[in-house]
């Protein structure tokens, strides 16, 4: 049996799913939010790198659903369901939503917290519980999720490494 782990990388405004023993990662989250949806028993997880809170803010023919919290979470659930996952068994962990700079328009400065709020609202609407979160602050994050252990590891520039 092949035990080697592959690290699947998710870009900005992107989403992918992964099965154990493989792990999934996204790097350089600033005001963006990383949303992990996972099934503990089946050891499958999806990771979404959200840039913006609401798809209604974008243009109508915008095809990249993974860019927005609402359409992104919805599509990630669909991807997991297509893999045979029962949506009721999904749990989530989230990280990101920092305020990187203190200037810009009011909307831009608050984009991190707004992304976090939008993600939580969407998860709540879909009745997906948030098991852990590491959000806010003013530092970028790189996150990695292992569907086998259900742990999300988070690396920041100054505060080092932690696991939630």
């Amino acid at each position: 049996m092949n035990n080697s782990k592959t690290v699947v990388r998710v870009g900005i405004a992107d989403m992918k799913i992964v099965k154990a023993p493989n792990i999934i990662k996204t790097s350089g989250l600033g005001s963006c939010v990383g949303v992990v949806l996972y099934d503990e028993v089946k050891m499958i997880a999806g990771l979404l790198h959200v840039m913006l809170p609401d798809s209604n803010l974008g243009r109508l023919d915008n095809v990249n659903v993974a860019k927005f919290a609402d359409t992104g979470i919805h599509s990630l659930v669909e991807l997991l369901v297509a893999e045979g996952i029962n949506p009721l068994s999904l749990k989530s962990k989230i990280a990101g939503g920092a305020q990187m700079f203190q200037f810009g328009t009011n909307d831009t400065i608050r984009i991190g917290p707004r992304n976090v709020e939008a993600v939580k609202m969407m998860l709540d609407r879909l009745s997906i519980p948030i098991m852990a979160e590491d959000t806010g602050g003013s530092s970028g994050r790189t996150i990695q999720f292992d569907p086998k252990t259900g742990k999300l590891s988070i690396r920041t520039v100054n505060k080092g490494f932690k696991e939630i």
Binding site: T108, I111, S139
Partner: peptide, 20 residues
């Protein structure tokens, strides 16, 4: 404005408006 951080975290802040 200055930040010491990851490239992705810094540049994405300047992409918010156009990414709509």
């Amino acid at each position: 404005s200055l930040s010491v951080d990851m490239v992705g975290a810094i540049i994405s802040y300047g992409l918010i408006e156009l990414s709509h």
